[in-house]
Computed example of a mutant assay.
Amino acid sequence: MSAYSRIEVSAPGSLMLMGEHAVLFGELALACAVDARLSVSLTPRPDRLVKIDSELGQYTGSLDSLESMSELAFVLAVVERYQPYLATGFELSIRSGFSHTVGLGSSAAVTAATTAALAAYASQSTAPSDLFDTALAAVHQVQKGRGSGTDLAASIHGGVIAYRVQPREIRPLAGLPSISLYYSGYKMKTPDVLQLVEQKAARQPALYAELYRLMGQTCLAAERAVDNWDWQALGELMNIYQGLMDALGVCDATLAEMIHRLRAEAGVQGVKISGSGLGDCVLALGQVNAELPWQSIPVQVAATGVEIRYEKD
C-alpha cells in the first residue's frame, strides 16, 4: 500500500501563443499555461480495483485487465503505462475548472495531472521531463501517433515555454504576458483541420513548406520578445503569424471579424487565432475593456505547472 492516504495533483490548462501547424514540421512553437486548472485526486485501495469518477464518465475495472472507454481514453492510457509498477488499485476523482469544449488544452491537462498522480503513487519519477515522456506516449497511443506535445509541455512546466518536437526542446521563458481570450462559439476538431490543410498543401507543397519556415522564423523572434518582456514586438509578431495562418486557409469569416475588432481596441497589441483554426478561440495580447458579442474566457498566464500534494492519515 501507499505511504499516503491521498495524492492531490492539479495541472493548468494551456494555450498556443504561436507555432500552430508549423510545430508539426519541426519548427519552434510557443505555448503558455493558464490559470484555469484541472485537479486529480488519487486514493489508494487495498485490492486491485481501479475506479474513476469524472464529469466525462465513471469507470470501474481491474488493474489486471483494463477495459477501454473512449471518454476516459487519455486517463486509461496513462494507467496502462504505470500498470507494471502498481501493487494495488486506486480511485481517481477528476474535476475541471474549465470546459472541455473550449480550447484550453483539457486533454493535455488531464493527461499531465493523471501522469503525475500515477507516477507519485507508483514511486516513479515525477521530474517534469519524465512526466512529459510518459504523458506524450499516452497521447500518441490514443491519437495514433498524432500530437506535437506542445500543450502538454505548457501544462507540466507552467508559464510560457518554447517547444520543438525534434530534436526535443522545452525552454521556459522569462516573460508572463497579459492576454484576453474569446471563444467563437464553435470549433472544428484539430485532426479535421489538419487534414484540410494537408489537402491544400499537397497542391502547393513548395509554397506551404515556405509558409511553415516563415512561421518558424516568426516564433524565433517571438521567443526573444517574451524573454525580454517586449510586448510591442510580440504583438507585431502575433499579427504577422496570423497572416500566415490566413495563408494556410484556417481563418474563416467569423474569426477574421473577431481579429479585426479586437485589434481596434486601444489596450491590444496583437491578435491571432489560438489553436488550429476554423473555429475555437482568438487570442489578444493585452486587455480588452469593450463589450464584444463573443464569449470572453477569463484566463491569464499561470506561472506554475503541475503541482503535487501528498496527504497522510
Rank of each mutant, 00 (worst) to 15 (best):
I170R: 00
R81G: 11
A22N: 03
V40W: 04
G275M: 10
L285H: 11
L248G: 03
L173F: 03
S276Y: 00
L278D: 00
F74L: 12
P172G: 04
M238I: 03
S68Q: 11
Y121C: 08
Q204G: 05
A108I: 13
C219F: 01
R309E: 15
Y183V: 06
L194M: 12
Q204N: 12
M69A: 10
A225R: 02
G147S: 11
D313T: 15
N239E: 14
S129R: 08
R213H: 13
L248F: 04
A77E: 06
K189L: 12
I52S: 06
A120H: 04
S10G: 10
R263Y: 02
R224G: 03
I273M: 10
A122G: 14
L234H: 04
A33M: 05
L136W: 03
S148E: 01
P84T: 08
S70R: 15
N228E: 15
E27C: 09
A36D: 03
A112H: 01
A233L: 15
F25K: 12
L56P: 08
A116W: 02
P191H: 01
L24R: 07
A29G: 11
R45E: 07
L220K: 13
V226K: 04
G61P: 05
I179E: 06
D230H: 13
V250A: 02
A33N: 01
G13I: 03
S10K: 06
P191T: 04
F132D: 02
K144S: 11
A73H: 06
V142K: 05
S274F: 02
A247F: 09
A209D: 08
F132K: 00
E27V: 03
G279Q: 02
D35G: 06
G286C: 09
S54N: 08
S41K: 09
F90G: 06
M69Q: 15
R171T: 14
I259N: 01
L237E: 05
G275S: 04
G216T: 08
E236L: 09
D280T: 04
S99F: 10
Q217I: 09
A112K: 00
P128G: 07
A206N: 09
Q141L: 14
A31I: 12
S41Y: 15
L86P: 06
L176M: 10
E210H: 13
G305T: 02
S178T: 13
Y121V: 07
S39R: 12
S99K: 14
Q295G: 03
V50L: 08
A201K: 02
A256W: 01
D227G: 12
P128Q: 05
L220P: 00
S41N: 13
G249I: 11
A253R: 11
A36Q: 13
L173G: 01
L24E: 06
D133M: 11
L283R: 03
A73E: 02
P205N: 09
P177I: 02
E311S: 11
S10Q: 10
R164T: 10
L152A: 04
L237H: 02
S129M: 10
V288P: 00
L207A: 13
H140V: 15
Q143M: 10
G13M: 03
K312D: 11
E265A: 14
L17V: 08
